[in-house]
């Protein structure tokens, strides 16, 4: 089974086993990380609350985002050049070892 590491907003790391074909969002929820990655629309690209930042060279290894994903991603807070929607990244064998960062902005955007 491929492994996936979540880097939490406070810098701590959580390495988890992922079933092949599952999305990063599903894997997060299977591992009790609902509070970190909300996924309000349950993966239907209507919310941007599953935003993750893909670390290092991994970004280039992912299939590129669709136009729909880019549109929704644009609305995510703390957007970076290697941001993706967690519900759109599916774990395959060649993504074994993937590292994604959980942005903290969504929990601290007071006054917006």
């Amino acid at each position: 089974m491929p492994k996936l590491t979540f880097v939490m907003p406070d810098g701590s790391r959580r390495e988890v086993e992922a079933s092949e074909g599952a999305s990063v969002l599903e894997i997060a929820h299977d591992n009790d990380l609902e509070d970190a990655i909300e996924g309000a629309c349950e993966g239907s690209m209507a919310c941007s609350t599953c935003h993750v930042v893909v670390e290092g060279d991994w970004y280039a290894k992912l299939p590129p985002p669709s136009a729909e994903e880019s549109d929704i991603l644009d609305l995510a807070l703390g957007l970076t050049r290697t941001s993706r929607l967690g519900c759109q990244i599916r774990l395959t064998a060649d993504l074994d070892g993937l590292v994604v960062k959980v942005p903290g902005e969504h929990l601290d955007m007071r006054g917006r």
Partner: peptide, 17 residues
């Protein structure tokens, strides 16, 4: 609290706070 702006998840930090 904030007035009518933002998306659904903009309400989450309000609740957390």
């Amino acid at each position: 609290k904030r007035g009518p702006t933002g998306v659904i998840s903009s309400n989450r930090p309000d609740g957390v706070t």
